[in-house]
Amino acid sequence: MDPHANVEVTVNGVRHRRAVEPRLLLSDFLRHELGLTGTHVGCEHGVCGACTVLLDGDAVRSCLMFAVQADGHDVTTVEGLSDGSGETLHPLQAAFREAHGLQCGFCTPGVLMTLVPFLREHPDPDERQIREALSGNLCRCTGYQNIVAAVRLACGAPSSPRA
């Protein structure tokens, strides 16, 4: 049996086709095949949340999926949130910068990708909801306080989150 399988996946609006080993994790595919290294890997067993991406709009752990399983699907990574140049930030990104919602920034892409669909469903969350939404993403630097503050700031921002 040919050890490689084809995967055709749309990432941040761009279609990619590759032949990969079925065992290649989606996280490794995004980072090392497509060079989208904004998606980080922290535990590879689905706990830390750093590798969170959107699969057809829903947040999933990219370390708990094989790349081949994304065949025919739509993936959004942190690189897809802003315009790519870094000049224009997504409102949530801007709020994180404003509220000091990140320190080392390693967990941040996963946190953002968790929050984008959460805020789509809960445009005006209370603190408990925000903290529960964040509870699947580990951050060792911030103590979460300023992440919560950033989410609140983002909810008050004039433009609503995209993606």
Binding site: G38, V78, R97, T108
Partner: peptide
């Protein structure tokens, strides 16, 4: 922050 927030910051991996 801008680099970190947009996934453009270089980490060793």
């Amino acid at each position: 922050d801008a680099r970190l927030l947009t996934g453009r910051a270089l980490f060793v991996d």
